[in-house]
Amino acid sequence: MNRILKVSYGPALLVFLILMARFTFPNKMTFIIELAIFSIYVMGNNILYGYLGMVSFGQPFYLGVGAYATAIFLAHVGTNPLVGMLLSLLMGLVVGLILGPAFIRLRGDYFALINAATCAIGMFTIEKLLLPITRGDDGLWYRARMSQIPFVDIRMPDKFFLFALAIFLIVLILYNFMDKSALGSSFRAIRVNESKMKFLGYDTFKIRWIGFTLASILSALSGSLYAINFGFVNPSLAEPHRAAEVLVATLIGGAGTVFGPFFGTLAFLGIKDLVSQYIAHWELAVGILTLLVLFRFSKGIWGNTEAIMNEKFGKKRNRSVKKLLTDKAAT
């Protein structure tokens, strides 16, 4: 019970602050919805890049898988968005399990590029091969077909806001739990020294496979939420050139941290929202911020905040170290 409270406290506080922001800035509800959904997408990429040290240039593919699974279901098969969402989660799991063993054998540039290639193939599949089902560039429209789900009518934007926030909270708590668990430590340790992990008895291939699959599931979930939110999906969501967005948000927020994806998304979408009101090329501001992070604050927004907090409030924790150093100096 204590552990559940420990991993829930931070996410609950963050979601409370988001709720406050919703009522303080009522005209920013759409922005906040996108913030919650894109954060989940960045969390997925953060497992690959931040925890495992694997850069992927193909994450829009996994986002597209989730979005189209929900969209195709709602446009052609059923009307319940929750079933569409479960289908997306299942597709994310299946794609991760099938592609994982082949992809994670590759390292560095090769892993990044095979994902980019997969994304390009995915785009072609959506636009051309599955044209009768996906309707290609015209996209799929299904808002009118969506039925009401019990307790909350997520067809209404203000209700969908609460729904998306609830999903975000659940994902963030589970993510925090993962970070504090053996799995989170194993991810980080593999990034630092995979050989050592093998010598300790870890099957590092399986652990990276789990990470890849989790990233795929989170991206698919995010895609599904986009599909439900818009009531429309077209291939632009999964375009390969959009792979940089999720990478930049991960980097800015603080790779390998629990709350980094949220703050990275906040900075990325915030700049997009704010700067685009004044200049068309808002990407320029994101580029400058990225350079600043790369050269000056490599731990990102949350990574640096954590470091400062540890320095200020971590004295008690390090008392034994200081005592030892004092004793050594005395002798």
Binding site: A189, V192, N193, M197, K198, F199, G201, D203, T204
Partner: peptide, 24 residues
Amino acid sequence: LRAFEVAQLGLKYIQQDKHVFSDL
């Protein structure tokens, strides 16, 4: 056998580099 399987059988290897997980 692969390295992790050997370790699981109870044969451990400590490399020369003395690298621990530095962030942990």
